[in-house]
């Protein structure tokens, strides 16, 4: 065969085309590393060293833990976050289950309303809840229409720890419902039907099929909500009591009102460290999934 054997076009894998992807992703990557990972790391390291000698020192932590207000804040914040998470799951889990297995127009309405807080600016949510739950707010007004006596007994959560819990739950409902729903949608109707087919009751289906398959969504919802509640500011500041304060409020006060950036930094790093416990769980579950998906 006298085929004219043209040489294949030299594969134009120039230097440029190898570098191009990195050039394109560099700006956001540099921002993430330069303005998130680096400051976090730098702050962490700085809190562990003596400003003058540069030697390893726990002095700043000793100061933090010696201060009663700070420690109270830390414990208070953890407590608030856990209580809010508990309340959040008590509401969102059944809600997500209901939304997963119902397609009526009422279910659509329920879904739309449950997403509403996501579209409300944080500060507006705080304001709305204040106006709603405070003494002589709309909630008490409505109770009054039922019975003025009952209204007298109304205990407003405004400027109390409960106020923070209510606010944090309120803001987190849409996101949590969406994440749980995403998990629930992965489970096939056929899976449940076949379980019913072999005579499994509801409880069995829930604990043995639904829960295990939702492990990941639950983990992600738990971790992300914990982190965001731990670092919340607006709701605790506006709805919470003057004392104790959550870490967010404490940090802001320390930085801006008392002009103590070093102390504020220590407080920030402590929130990092606490959140890193759940953060690691999150990172692991997210990257595990990504790797598995390839």
């Amino acid at each position: 065969m006298t085929a004219s054997q043209t040489e294949p076009a030299p594969h134009s894998k120039s230097r440029f085309s190898t570098v191009l992807p990195y050039l394109l992703v560099a700006p956001p990557i540099l921002m993430v590393f330069g303005l998130i990972f680096f400051p976090a790391l730098q702050s962490t390291l700085r809190t562990l060293t003596d400003a003058e000698t540069g030697a390893f020192s726990l002095a700043r932590y000793e100061m933090f833990f010696a201060d009663k207000t700070s420690v109270t804040s830390l414990i208070f914040t953890i407590q608030i976050a856990l209580e809010s998470l508990l309340g959040l799951f008590v509401i969102c889990f059944p809600l997500a289950l209901y939304l997963r297995f119902n397609t009526s127009r009422i279910a659509t309405g329920v879904q739309m309303i449950s997403l509403l807080p996501m579209f409300v600016p944080g500060i507006m949510s705080a304001y709305a809840l204040i106006r709603f739950v405070r003494g002589r707010g709309l909630f008490e007004t409505l109770i009054y229409q039922v019975s003025p006596l009952l209204a007298d007994a109304y205990y407003s959560p405004y400027v109390k720890p409960e106020g923070i819990v209510i606010g944090l739950i309120w803001e987190a409902i849409p996101f949590t419902v969406l994440i749980l729903l995403a998990g629930l949608r992965q489970l096939d109707n056929g899976l449940i039907e076949s379980a019913q087919d072999i005579g499994a009751n509801r409880w069995y289906i829930f604990t043995r099929i639904i829960l295990p398959l939702m492990r990941r969504s639950i983990l992600i919802a738990f971790c992300l909500n914990f982190i965001s509640m731990f670092g919340a500011y607006t709701i605790p500041y506006l709805l919470g009591p003057a004392a104790p304060q959550t870490m967010g409020v404490l940090m802001q006060r320390t930085l801006q009102d008392y002009q103590q950036p070093l102390e504020a930094e220590t407080q920030a790093v402590i929130t990092f460290l606490i959140c890193s416990l759940v953060g690691l769980v999150y990172v692991q579950s997210v990257s595990g999934e990504r790797v598995r998906k390839g």
Partner: peptide, 17 residues
């Protein structure tokens, strides 16, 4: 896809490039 080697012709005109 770019052939690693060889030639493709339409009406005896090479279109490989």
């Amino acid at each position: 896809e770019e052939p690693t080697a060889g030639d493709i012709r339409i009406d005896d005109r090479s279109i490989g490039m």
